[in-house]
């Protein structure tokens, strides 16, 4: 009754008939990466545990390494203004600081890369996105570690 009066007054219903009904329901919004009886497939190995342990242990070591590094580089003995080629060359003349910097490079890069790996695992929903992001991450990590290691071991203070 009210519908007909609306039509007579020239004002139609604001929206058309619903697209959905009991026989034709709207699609529900699926949760991402739902668990089913078939997924995830179980994998053998302790990699996740090793990665978790590595994060804790490397974190503790890095606190010492990085804070000492920052103190020497930026605070003690004249601060940041003293840093130059000669300063770096002088430090790397000692095997102790070579090992120190090498350890710091490897631990920090692997720690950061593993952290980003877990972030990608947590937030990238599609398998392809994961694959590409992780590929990019691993490439960058390996490149930086290799380049840094090469420089520490082949450093020549008399370079022209």
């Amino acid at each position: 009754m009210s519908d007909t009066t609306l039509e007579k007054s020239g004002v139609g219903p604001v929206e058309g008939a619903s697209l959905y009904d009991a026989d034709n329901p709207a699609p529900v919004i699926e949760a991402p990466r739902k668990r089913t009886a078939k997924t995830p497939r179980s994998t053998r190995g302790n990699f996740e545990m090793a990665a978790w342990l590595f994060m804790r242990l490397s974190g503790v070591v890095l606190v010492v390494l990085v804070i000492t590094h920052l103190l020497i580089q930026l605070v003690l003995d004249g601060g940041v203004s003293k840093i130059g080629f000669a300063f770096v060359a002088g430090r790397w003349a000692s095997p102790f600081w070579q090992v120190w910097d090498l350890l710091m490079l490897w631990l920090a890069m692997l720690h950061g890369a593993n952290g980003l790996r877990t972030v990608i695992n947590d937030y990238a929903e599609r398998p392809n996105t994961r694959l590409w992001l992780k590929g990019l991450l691993y490439t960058a990590t390996v490149f930086t570690i290799l380049l840094g290691t090469l420089v520490i071991f082949t450093f020549d203070p008399n370079i022209r």
Binding site: P40, S42, T43, N46, F47, E48, M49, A51, W52, T118, N121, D122
Partner: peptide, 13 residues
């Protein structure tokens, strides 16, 4: 062993 897997306890933040 089940919880040691990729999607087990190690994903807890």
């Amino acid at each position: 062993e089940i919880l040691n897997d990729k999607d087990g306890v190690w994903r807890c933040r």
